[in-house]
Design a protein around this nucleic acid. Structure first.
Lengths: 174, 174
DNA sequence: GCAAATGTAAAACGACCGTTTTACATTGTC
DNA sequence: GACAATGTAAAACGGTCGTTTTACATTTGC
């Protein structure tokens, strides 16, 4: 189980840094220090490796985002970005590159989105007692991830401040 | 100049719907109703066609976003999304698929980002008299585009409301 | 100590794809 | 009415890439 993990870990960073299509099997075997035969024996094919890398990313990401407030969520995103860099949401990119035509990959992306929304909803409810601003915080989170690609961590800081403002705001009648 | 335009227009929607890598030259010639020889004579190669399609998208997009307030900006984004669908920012996707290693494409993406930020900055200044909340609105805009992929137009509505709240908020001392 | 399992190294396969070329039809202009 | 210019249709080229195969080395458990 050690080799499989090494392959997946190396693949996650390779895909993140160079893209899914642009990363060939030769680079994946190289960075994982395994032969192509071993890689195929352990993962089956490239799509399965992409799925495994996405699931690995999902676990790592939400492990770092295991927080108890919306403010701490953005603080954790800041830490993540400072450690990992900002190249956009890996799941969004995976979906874009495959055109949503690889079901297993789409499933992995959907799983991530569900987890993210569940997390945010839980935090929002514990903070203001209703789910009412969940989409707002979700938008701020997604926007922070995307805008950080070219505005850096100050995009995350801006999202963090805006989230605080929105949640402090007295609930408007619909 | 009519054929070139037909090729670029068809390419823009093909790339948008199926992705850049996943869209082969055969599909591009098919949807534009031209021979491959004509396509190459007019555009040169696939990367140049991608750049042309991105520039075409940029012109169309900002033509629809020619507004005078932040609220109208999100209203215009709503209109755009209802007409075109939500598949994520085409420029972000282009960058992701090429790994940022095709300079001409990266330039087109940078041009879009610059235009978007300039537009938002202009609107924010005209609304609150300072550039202070530009990054916040930018984050909300990017987040709305991304989240609309799986939350639909209500993500844009949430961003729109949040933008109004943020801009109404009394300026906090730094 | 010897199979069986598991690994490496590297060549080969087969399909796909961007691009070019060949051969031919259509058009507009002097 | 001939001749560029510009178009189509389709075959061919050449490289890349995911995947498989061949040949061989190394571990591991009975």
């Amino acid at each position: 189980m050690k080799i499989r993990n090494r392959i997946i870990t190396a693949a996650e960073t390779a895909f993140d840094h160079c893209g899914f299509t642009a990363t060939g099997m030769d680079r994946l075997t190289e960075t994982a220090n395994v032969s192509s035969r071993t890689l195929y024996k352990h993962l089956g094919n490239k799509n399965a490796l992409i799925v495994a890398a996405l699931e690995h990313r999902r676990r790592r990401f939400f492990a770092q985002l295991d927080v108890e407030s919306v403010d701490a969520l953005f603080a954790a995103l800041l830490d993540w970005t400072e450690a990992e860099g900002a190249r956009g949401c890996l799941f969004l990119r995976a979906n874009g590159e495959t055109g949503g035509e690889v079901p297993e990959i789409s499933d992995a992306v959907t799983a991530y989105r569900t987890d993210l929304r569940d997390l945010i909803e839980r935090l929002v409810v514990s903070e203001i007692g209703s789910t009412h601003e969940t989409d707002t915080i979700l938008v701020l989170f997604e926007g922070a991830v995307t805008a950080a690609c070219y505005r850096g961590t100050q995009a995350i800081a801006a999202a963090r401040t805006a989230a605080a403002v929105v949640l402090k705001q007295p609930r408007q009648p619909q």
